[in-house]
Structures are given as C-alpha cells and as structure tokens.
Lab assay of single mutants.
Amino acid sequence: SEFQINEQVLASWSDSRFYPAKVTAVNKDGTYTVKFYDGVVQTVKHIHVKA
C-alpha cells in the first residue's frame, strides 16, 4: 500500500523489529525515507513499512 509524507507508520529496524516512524519522503524507486522517534533517518523498502 502507498504511504504519504508525514504519515505515522511502523518501519523495520536492523533487528527486524518494527518501530514507530514518520514518512519523510516517498522515493521513485519504491522506497520510503522514514524518521524514527529517536531522530534516526533511514531509507527502507516498502515491504519494511506497515501501518
């Protein structure tokens, strides 16, 4: 599913667990740039983002 900029989502971290994050960019290659609550910004594949 498509997510929008500033949408609150759950994004997987390197430990494969999902954490609350905010979408900061929707990228043309189908990835999302997300910002976790601790301030870390990461680009993740769409399969690693869920509502």
Rank of each mutant, 00 (worst) to 15 (best):
S1G: 12
E2C: 15
E2W: 08
E2A: 11
E2S: 11
E2N: 11
E2P: 09
F3R: 05
F3Y: 09
Q4Y: 09
Q4K: 11
Q4P: 06
Q4W: 09
Q4I: 07
I5L: 10
I5C: 07
I5E: 08
N6H: 09
N6T: 01
N6C: 12
E7H: 03
E7W: 06
Q8H: 13
Q8F: 12
Q8S: 12
V9L: 02
V9M: 04
V9E: 01
L10Y: 09
L10F: 09
L10G: 02
L10A: 00
L10T: 04
L10H: 06
A11N: 02
A11L: 06
A11H: 03
S12F: 12
S12N: 06
S12C: 15
S12L: 15
S14H: 13
D15L: 00
D15G: 13
S16G: 15
S16R: 09
S16A: 11
S16C: 14
R17W: 10
F18S: 03
F18H: 05
F18I: 05
Y19V: 08
Y19E: 07
P20R: 03
P20S: 01
P20T: 02
P20V: 05
P20D: 03
P20H: 03
A21Y: 04
A21Q: 01
A21G: 08
A21L: 03
K22S: 08
K22L: 15
K22A: 08
K22V: 15
K22R: 12
V23M: 00
V23I: 15
V23D: 00
V23W: 00
V23F: 00
T24M: 14
T24H: 03
T24S: 06
T24Q: 09
T24F: 02
A25I: 08
A25S: 10
A25C: 09
V26K: 07
V26R: 06
N27H: 11
N27V: 01
K28G: 14
D29S: 00
D29V: 00
D29F: 01
D29Q: 00
G30F: 04
G30S: 01
G30Y: 04
G30T: 00
G30N: 04
G30M: 04
T31L: 02
T31Y: 08
T31N: 05
T31H: 04
Y32C: 07
Y32K: 05
Y32D: 03
Y32S: 03
T33M: 07
T33E: 13
T33A: 02
V34D: 02
V34Y: 01
K35S: 10
K35Q: 15
F36M: 05
F36W: 07
F36H: 00
Y37A: 12
Y37E: 14
Y37K: 07
D38P: 04
G39A: 04
G39R: 02
V40A: 12
V40G: 07
V40C: 14
V40I: 11
V40E: 13
V41W: 05
V41A: 03
V41Y: 09
V41D: 06
V41T: 10
Q42F: 07
Q42E: 09
Q42L: 12
Q42D: 06
T43A: 06
V44C: 09
K45V: 09
K45Y: 09
K45E: 10
K45M: 11
H46K: 15
H46G: 15
H46Q: 14
I47S: 14
I47Y: 10
H48A: 11
H48T: 07
V49P: 09
V49W: 02
V49D: 05
V49E: 05
V49K: 15
K50R: 12
K50S: 08
K50W: 08
K50T: 10
K50F: 07
A51V: 11
A51W: 06
A51Q: 11
A51E: 08
